[in-house]
Amino acid sequence: MDTTHKDRRNAISTILYCRTSTVEQTLDHQLTQAQQAGFKIDEVIADPGSSGVSTKLRDRPQGKRLFDKLRSGDVLVVRWVDRLGRNYEDVTTVIREFMEMGVTIRTVINGMTFDGSTGDPIQKAVRDAVIAFMAATAQSQVEITKAAQKAGIDAAKNDDTKYRGRKPSYDRRTYDAIVDLVGKQMGDSAIARTTGVSRQAVIRIRNNPDLALKALQRWTG
């Protein structure tokens, strides 16, 4: 009997889940951090950062795949617990759900390990308290960052020479090409592939070309 496929299916996997957004949070950087911390990663699953800040893990493009792929005995590695949810409730719920599945969660930062193997009520209480503390800290950091960003934007808005908003991912030539292709009834995904910009940028230009052009002009003069 050929048991190769069965053995591969039942083998324990170590999966790194990443959110990628800033220079410090690229896929390569997070993978390198995990490897330097001693993790031997079998597979990396990653979502763009914009999909993780306001979306539950199950609803993220690759988050659902993560739930489908993990099996009892697998190890889920994350940079920190904030990768797993939008807020305190999300993070604690996801961690408990994974533990109930028999998955062990390990963090690169602080080297924390969470699993459901213990049956001792005191150890459970300590574990759950640590999870709650880390989830609360993660939410607090997100709220502090948002508040700081808003304060910076509000201050910059008072100085018209400084505030320009987020720099567009397209230049004038690309903008004109997108507008032309929109006029030819080409689909958003096809336009994105043709022009090399994100589908979200194409949609913004399609929905409000004048606003998109003004955003570009603030950066190009």
Rank of each mutant, 00 (worst) to 15 (best):
residue 128 D to W: 10
residue 120 D to H: 15
residue 159 D to P: 08
residue 164 R to T: 08
residue 3 T to I: 11
residue 220 T to S: 11
residue 21 S to L: 05
residue 41 I to N: 04
residue 98 F to Q: 01
residue 108 V to F: 05
residue 20 T to G: 05
residue 42 D to Q: 05
residue 127 R to F: 04
residue 170 Y to F: 13
residue 63 G to R: 03
residue 188 D to K: 08
residue 160 D to P: 12
residue 106 R to S: 13
residue 33 Q to R: 15
residue 21 S to N: 03
residue 37 A to Y: 02
residue 110 N to L: 10
residue 178 I to T: 02
residue 126 V to R: 13
residue 168 P to Y: 07
residue 178 I to R: 04
residue 208 N to A: 15
residue 202 V to S: 04
residue 191 I to K: 01
residue 156 A to T: 08
residue 160 D to K: 14
residue 22 T to W: 02
residue 107 T to N: 02
residue 114 F to D: 01
residue 32 T to A: 14
residue 33 Q to L: 14
residue 90 D to C: 02
residue 143 E to A: 07
residue 182 V to R: 04
residue 216 L to E: 04
residue 94 V to F: 03
residue 59 D to R: 10
residue 35 Q to C: 12
residue 182 V to P: 02
residue 64 K to W: 12
residue 141 Q to G: 09
residue 26 T to P: 06
residue 137 T to F: 08
residue 137 T to Q: 09
residue 134 M to G: 02
residue 26 T to A: 05
residue 94 V to W: 00
residue 38 G to D: 07
residue 88 Y to L: 15
residue 131 I to C: 04
residue 190 A to N: 13
residue 38 G to F: 07
residue 66 L to P: 01
residue 158 N to L: 15
residue 40 K to G: 11
residue 162 K to C: 09
residue 139 Q to V: 03
residue 208 N to Q: 10
residue 133 F to R: 04
residue 58 R to I: 13
residue 68 D to T: 13
residue 84 L to E: 00
residue 33 Q to A: 15
residue 134 M to C: 11
residue 55 T to M: 04
residue 109 I to V: 14
residue 203 I to E: 08
residue 213 L to F: 13
residue 135 A to C: 12
residue 214 K to L: 12
residue 90 D to G: 06
residue 17 Y to S: 08
residue 212 A to R: 02
residue 11 A to C: 14
residue 54 S to M: 00
residue 124 K to I: 10
residue 151 A to W: 03
residue 200 Q to L: 11
residue 183 G to I: 10
residue 33 Q to N: 15
residue 147 A to E: 07
residue 151 A to I: 06
residue 123 Q to H: 15
residue 211 L to Q: 15
residue 132 A to L: 08
residue 69 K to I: 02
residue 86 R to S: 04
residue 34 A to D: 03
residue 14 T to P: 02
residue 56 K to M: 07
residue 41 I to M: 04
residue 104 T to V: 05
residue 185 Q to N: 14
residue 178 I to E: 01
residue 168 P to S: 09
residue 206 R to T: 06
residue 41 I to D: 03
residue 65 R to Y: 11
residue 119 G to Y: 10
residue 61 P to Q: 09
residue 58 R to M: 11
residue 94 V to Y: 00
residue 117 S to V: 12
residue 154 D to A: 10
residue 173 R to P: 05
residue 196 G to M: 03
residue 203 I to C: 04
residue 173 R to K: 15
residue 44 V to Y: 00
residue 132 A to V: 11
residue 9 R to S: 12
residue 186 M to P: 03
residue 13 S to P: 01
residue 209 P to F: 07
residue 85 G to V: 00
residue 69 K to Y: 07
residue 72 S to D: 15
residue 2 D to Y: 14
residue 135 A to R: 01
residue 102 G to H: 06
residue 171 D to I: 10
residue 75 V to I: 13
residue 78 V to L: 02
residue 46 A to R: 00
residue 41 I to S: 01
